[in-house]
Computed example of a mutant assay.
Amino acid sequence: MKSFRLLSAAALVASCAAVAVSPAHAQSKTIYIGMNGGPMEKAYTSQVLPMFEQANNVKVVVVPGTSSDILAKLLANRDKPQIHVVFLDDGVMARALSMGICQKLDDSPTLKELYPFARMKDDIGAGVQLGMTGIAYNTKLFTQKGWAAPTSWLDFADPKYKGKVVFQSESSSTFGLHGFLALNRLWGGSEKNVEPGFSKWPNTVGPNVVEYVPNSAKISEMVQTGEAGLFPLTPTAVADLQDKGMPVAYASPKEGPVLLLVDVCVVKNNPDPQLAQKLAQFLLSKPAQEKAAVAGKQIPTNRLAAMPASMQKSLGNVEGLLSKATVVDWETINAHRAEWDKRWNQQIER
């Protein structure tokens, strides 16, 4: 009887202990990732991040914002960052690296699966999503006008498109900057020489532009009204518009698109560097990038990741497109961006 009571007491203590520790054991860690809101956030929170959460008993919380917004948050809290991992457009990432925001990615087999251009110098970060800025056009308008699909960056200067070109501001949009630099190259310039772009624009593309927009958010509305006929965009951004029922299509310029990467980096001095490294490696992996392709039409940077058949059909041979893609010099761009922005506002959008 005594032994029974001792056993019962021990069981009761064990039971109470289990009740006491169970919630703590079940409680998962929380890790924060900064990325663009909208379609990207939706794709990752719906299908990609849950895979990591379940495998690691962790909650991943998205801090949404533009790349510039995210960088500003990191700079404001650089001594004690709250965000563990960030997605940044390559131009903003170049600025972040120059400011010492990121730490080196751990070496892993996953990094070797990436396209070589997606691995940043010293593996301080890596491309997680591939983009190619090219030409988007309003298929409904083009059909009504009997126009063939655009084929060249120089089509933005074709007089028949007068009043139908929408261009994102160079000073606030990577798409606008890429379009400007692509034309500047065709006119004989480079990132180190933007005089051809600024001098030729007012008499070529300028007369065709119906409106300069600060970002691409207004374009869907302008497509619906028939105002927007031609504008710089990526295949992923075009697919987002198509999902909303917009009559748009993507055309890769014969001279080649401009490479646009969304990069991932682990934030230096973050609260849980080991878990942050694990999340970054997961996001670069084949399973994660395949999910992102399905959920958000994100083009993988992992060479082993397959895209849905519909994406493959729309894009065609991605490696062929990449072989013609232009890679811009972000170091030179960031060094002169303030000067360019001032000239753009004074000479182009005045």
Rank of each mutant, 00 (worst) to 15 (best):
G163W: 04
G163F: 09
G163P: 07
G163E: 07
V165A: 11
V165M: 02
Q168D: 10
S169G: 13
E170T: 14
E170Q: 10
E170D: 05
S172E: 07
S173L: 10
T174M: 13
F175M: 06
F175P: 00
G179C: 12
F180P: 00
L181V: 11
A182D: 00
A182Q: 09
A182W: 00
A182K: 04
A182R: 10
R185F: 05
L186V: 05
L186T: 01
W187N: 08
G188L: 03
G188T: 02
G189M: 02
K192D: 03
E195K: 10
E195C: 02
G197T: 05
K200T: 02
K200F: 01
W201I: 01
P202N: 12
N203I: 14
T204N: 11
T204R: 10
V205S: 03
N208L: 05
N208Y: 03
V209D: 06
V210S: 13
E211L: 11
E211P: 03
Y212K: 03
Y212P: 00
P214G: 05
P214E: 09
A217L: 10
A217I: 14
K218F: 13
E221P: 10
E221D: 08
M222G: 02
Q224C: 08
G226F: 00
A228Q: 08
L230D: 08
F231C: 09
F231R: 05
F231Y: 14
L233Q: 11
P235I: 04
P235K: 05
A237Y: 14
A237H: 12
V238A: 13
V238S: 06
A239C: 03
A239K: 13
A239N: 11
A239R: 14
D240H: 12
L241E: 08
Q242T: 10
D243S: 12
D243F: 01
D243R: 15
K244W: 03
G245I: 08
G245D: 12
G245M: 05
M246Y: 07
P247T: 00
P247Q: 06
A249H: 01
A249I: 02
Y250P: 00
Y250Q: 08
Y250S: 00
Y250L: 06
A251W: 05
S252P: 00
S252K: 06
P253D: 12
P253E: 15
K254Y: 03
K254R: 15
E255C: 07
G256F: 08
G256N: 04
P257F: 09
V258R: 01
V258Q: 11
L259W: 08
L259M: 15
L260A: 15
L261E: 15
L261C: 14
V262A: 15
V264D: 11
V264M: 07
V264C: 08
V264Y: 03
C265V: 15
V267G: 04
V267L: 05
N270A: 12
P271M: 03
D272I: 09
P273A: 06
P273T: 09
Q274R: 13
Q274M: 14
L275M: 15
L275T: 14
A276L: 13
A276V: 10
Q277W: 09
K278N: 14
K278T: 07
A280I: 00
A280W: 11
Q281R: 14
F282H: 12
F282C: 13
L283K: 11
L283A: 12
L283F: 15
L284G: 11
L284K: 09
K286R: 10
P287F: 04
A288V: 04
A292Q: 06
A293C: 07
V294F: 08
A295F: 06
A295Y: 10
